[in-house]
């Protein structure tokens, strides 16, 4: 079954325009700093990950992170998807925001990899975006979201996976 899209909350976040947000908590207003700066500044709570950054450097510091922005300078660079899953697999539960060249047709795969906020450079058409989030009736494989893969549904295993 397609998921229900929560009402998007606009304009929140640290400078970037968050157009879609799938969280109930208050958005963190702290500025996001680079990965290296974040590791040095022990009071920082928001971090911005660029495609070449090693997301695993953040794992020892997950406890103090409230917001991770993952930048997609070009939609064709898919490293941010691995960043998102690695953070979620390590138990990161804070906001994971896709920023940059975020387009309609990548929204659903981003969400599956664990992104729960989207701040596209250029605002997206709301109707088309909603259709994109709701596009897939099922999923074939587990990812960072709660969707149950087809290969579990087929065998009566409907519970969420931890992956």
């Amino acid at each position: 079954m397609a998921e229900v899209l929560p009402l998007p909350s606009e304009g929140a976040g640290s400078g970037d325009h968050v157009q879609f947000r799938f969280r109930d908590d208050e958005p963190l207003m702290d500025p996001a700093v680079t990965v290296d700066a974040f590791i040095d500044q022990t009071n920082a709570t928001a971090v911005r990950v660029e495609p070449g950054d090693d997301a695993r450097k953040l794992l020892p510091h997950l406890g103090r992170i409230g917001l991770v922005e993952v930048n997609f300078p070009a939609f064709t660079d898919g490293r941010g998807y691995s960043v998102a899953r690695i953070l979620r697999e390590a138990g990161y539960a804070g906001e994971l925001r896709a920023v940059g060249d975020v387009l309609i047709d990548q929204l659903s795969q981003m969400k599956r990899c664990g992104f729960d906020a989207f701040a596209p450079d250029k605002p997206l058409d709301e109707t088309d975006a909603k259709a994109a989030f709701d596009r897939w009736p099922h999923v074939y494989q587990p990812a960072a979201d709660a969707r149950v893969p087809i290969w579990n549904l087929r065998h009566g295993r409907n519970q969420e996976q931890n992956g």
Binding site: F75, G78, Q109, W136, Q141
Partner: peptide, 8 residues
């Protein structure tokens, strides 16, 4: 098929 991490 549609593996979300590996489409780009």
């Amino acid at each position: 098929t549609f593996h979300p991490e590996f489409l780009t």
